[in-house]
Nucleic acid binder design. Structure first.
Lengths: 205, 205
DNA sequence: AGTTGATTCAATCAAATGATGGAATCAAAT
DNA sequence: ATTTGATTCCATCATTTGATTGAATCAACT
């Protein structure tokens, strides 16, 4: 059974997919309450009623966006996990950082919305369970912090959270932090990787 | 010359101060656009017109809140810096984490609003310059990452940002992360300190 | 008690916002 | 060409939200 979201992703040129893309970007920039349906519709170049026709109420569209970025993260993590399998730890860490940081800098709304959801209450709060705990355990296992995927210690989970959030921070905070560092975009991305590697290598090897 | 904010803080029982306190808490929970002036007024138990009488428009109140939490952080950082002066590095780090984490868990709206400002655009965006760069340099110096307060390398600033944001992450994300860890509040706070110490000690000593 | 200035609230506005109904348009199938 | 179903837009609602006005209340001082 194809969900509404899956159907939209099948054809990226479909109106439904275009709206979802704009919604990702704008919800990512302004958050749930900072975004109006009119802002999204205007970005796509359509009337708001068209938006409502395809996605229903604002909360449902937001929910679809969250699911979408979660799916994307899940796939990316799987991909990275396959790529680093079997290599020595320090190499695994460095490659994982390289790939994840690049991916997230290309899709900053992922970091924005992820952090936004961690930190902020929303007034008409739907809960919308996500798979964070599973991801955490998978990553912990992949980093050699646990013998068993299904039995990861709290310490290990905290360490993974620490690293994952640190990555998101640098991506989401780019507009704020980069001017402070007087870096151009590429230098800032490199500095992000360097900093992450510095802490990671010191802590885990 | 006493600013409007300073005047409010002089008497914590004043209406102006009570409004500011509620505004801190609620802006911290829901963000700028997620908060309505009515929510704040209701929390204080007053009419919105009274709120407007004391603080003017919503954006001005928000600005006062930001200044307030910044002042608080500045004072706390100074206090911690004095306390750790002269001690060996590993001790300095551990004490600083202990004190800052406790302080921020007592005032979670600081972490919430700090991260919110880093990561989110606001529609009617006033910029409102804050002293982040100065704080960064001071902390870097205090952590032994720079010889000179006024000449701190980009690498050092990135490392400090990394740590500071990591602290904020655990405080702001408590409601999200703590259930995943199945910790009570105190255990979660301790786990936060342990995790921070783990990375800090590995990286800097 | 009366005057004065500061504070508070009820009532109200205008604009923004989420949402919908129905007419118009488009595209594919017949 | 007509029919049919899907899509899009215009016009419009009802509510929420930021903000103000003016009358009432309070407190301090004479």
């Amino acid at each position: 059974m194809a969900t509404s979201l899956e159907k939209a992703k099948q054809n990226p040129d479909s109106m439904k997919a275009k709206i979802l893309d704009a919604a990702r970007r704008i919800f990512g920039e302004y958050g749930f309450h900072g975004t109006t349906t009119r802002m999204i519709a205007k970005a796509v170049g359509i009337d708001i009623s068209t938006l409502y026709y395809h996605w229903g109420e604002k909360g449902d569209l937001y929910e679809a966006v969250i699911r979408d970025i979660n799916d994307g993260m899940g796939k990316k993590l799987e991909e990275v996990e396959k790529k680093i399998k079997g290599r020595p730890l320090s190499e695994r860490l460095e490659i994982a950082i390289e790939d994840m940081v690049d991916y997230l800098f290309e899709h900053p709304e992922i970091s924005n919305l992820t952090l936004f959801r961690y930190f902020m209450k929303t007034r008409h709060g739907k809960e919308l369970d996500v798979r964070v705990p599973e991801y955490l355990s998978d990553i912990a296992y992949s980093m050699g912090l646990a013998e068993d995927r299904r039995n990861v210690s709290t310490e290990a989970k905290m360490k993974v959270l620490f690293i994952m959030n640190a990555i998101h921070n640098f991506i989401s905070g780019e507009n704020f932090f980069r001017p402070m560092m007087q870096h151009d975009r590429n230098a800032y991305i490199q500095a992000t990787k360097d900093t992450l590697n510095f802490f990671n290598l010191a802590a885990f090897t």
